[in-house]
Amino acid sequence: MSRDIFFVSNTTDELGGVTGWTHQTARLFAQQGHRVHVVGIHSADLTMALPEQPAHPVTALYPAHPPTPWTPHGLRDRFRLPTRRGEAARVASKKEAVARLSELFATARPGAVVIVTQVWAMEWVSEADTSGLRVIGMSHESYDYSRAGHRYRWIRNQYRDLDHWLVLTEEDADRWAADGMNNVGFLPNALARLPVLPSPRTARTVASIGRLCDQKAIDLLLDTWALVAPARPGWTLRVYGAGEDEAALKAQCTALGLDGSVEWMGRTDDVEGALAKSSVFVQSSRGEGFPLALLEAMASGVPCAAFDCAPGVREIVRDGEDGLLAPAGDVAALADRLLRLTGNPRLRDAMGTRARSAVQRFSEPETLRRWEELFAFLER
């Protein structure tokens, strides 16, 4: 059955895993015969170059991040005319954005589905007219990471009454269900493609790929590399990515005396090429959902060392079989895993080969089959 499917995200072009996942999944649905429209609340400042131009329509409701609601502080603040005018303009602009979203939804055929990929975007969807549509919410981060921040409250407030909402692992779904969210299910991310050839794993290079922000914890990676580099002369850590923490991280790198063994590669649109030049992949995140970077590294036959910071990480990497995990935030333990992989070519090759084979259980056809089952279930 061909359906109209709307993806609604914070943005449609922001550098990051959710953007890549959104357009990848939209492409899969379109190839399946569905009519797909990707909607972002706003256009991003730090944008992501997509591997191919989307064939599906893409709409941004705002040209830039909309202003946040005004909260007056004290009686005097309530009577500041410029501020009150700015808030009135914000409210009017939001009504226009919601109306535009409702107009898009009104074009849908019976059986249409709205997939809200990030909880902040749900604020607009909840005010739009979704009559006759099935609405599915999503969270691309772990229960613990949501629980530690403001998104926990947003999820409980915004997702409780949806037709369904999805996390990325069964473990997280069980934890949300125990928290009273009985409409939750799980569905992992899909591996986009398997490179024709794996990495030869001959370069003395460790790769990290991700946004330079607090969540990805490159600061912890630098502390880790400070323990590894003295024991591995000739090895280089290549950090691929851009973000708001770049200047601070480079200063930290210099302070740790690592400028001779760390290369800042900037953002890359050729992840496959970067991995082909690497022998080990490292992920030092404070929190994750179901990280695509791990899937891509394993598909390239590059063994991974990572912090066990989320159920999705340990579902992808089977510790001791096709990669090595360290307790979340334990810099010394992550350094130990990197020393093992960089110091033992036979271990690298064995784990890389097993990783490339094992990661194919997250294939696109299997993930698409599970989505179709969910759509059929919601129509009953």
Rank of each mutant, 00 (worst) to 15 (best):
G16R: 03
T19N: 05
T19K: 04
Q24K: 05
Q24H: 11
Q24E: 13
L28T: 07
F29I: 00
V36E: 02
H37E: 05
I41N: 03
H42V: 04
H42E: 07
L46K: 01
M48K: 09
E52A: 13
Q53G: 02
P57E: 03
Y62F: 15
P63F: 06
P66N: 07
T68I: 00
H73M: 08
L75E: 13
R76C: 00
D77C: 04
R78T: 12
P82Y: 01
T83E: 14
A88K: 12
A89Q: 14
R90F: 02
K95D: 12
A97I: 11
V98D: 06
V98S: 07
S102W: 05
F105W: 05
A106G: 14
T107P: 03
P110H: 06
V113N: 01
V114D: 03
V119T: 13
S126M: 10
A128S: 14
T130R: 15
T130K: 10
S131G: 15
L133M: 14
V135N: 07
I136G: 03
H140E: 09
E141C: 10
E141N: 15
D144F: 07
S146N: 15
A148Q: 14
H150E: 12
R151P: 00
Y152L: 08
R156Y: 00
Y159E: 01
R160E: 00
D161V: 03
L162W: 01
L162Q: 04
V167E: 03
T169M: 04
T169E: 03
E170F: 02
E171Q: 15
D174V: 02
M181T: 00
N182S: 15
R193N: 06
P200C: 07
V206G: 04
I209N: 02
Q215I: 08
L222T: 07
L227T: 03
A231L: 13
P233W: 09
A242E: 15
G243Y: 09
E244Y: 05
D245F: 01
D245E: 15
A248N: 11
K250P: 03
K250L: 11
Q252P: 01
L256R: 13
V262F: 07
E263G: 06
W264M: 08
D269S: 15
D270M: 04
D270G: 01
D270C: 05
V271F: 07
A276E: 10
S278F: 10
S279K: 14
G287D: 09
E288N: 10
G289N: 04
F290L: 07
P291G: 10
P291A: 08
A293P: 03
A299Q: 07
S300Q: 12
S300C: 15
A310L: 08
R318P: 00
E321I: 13
A332M: 10
A332R: 15
L334I: 08
R337Q: 15
R340L: 14
G343N: 10
P345C: 14
D349I: 09
A350P: 04
M351E: 15
M351G: 09
T353F: 05
A355V: 10
A358E: 13
R361I: 02
R361G: 06
R361D: 02
E366D: 15
T367N: 12
L368M: 09
R370Y: 01
L374D: 00
F377M: 12
E379H: 13
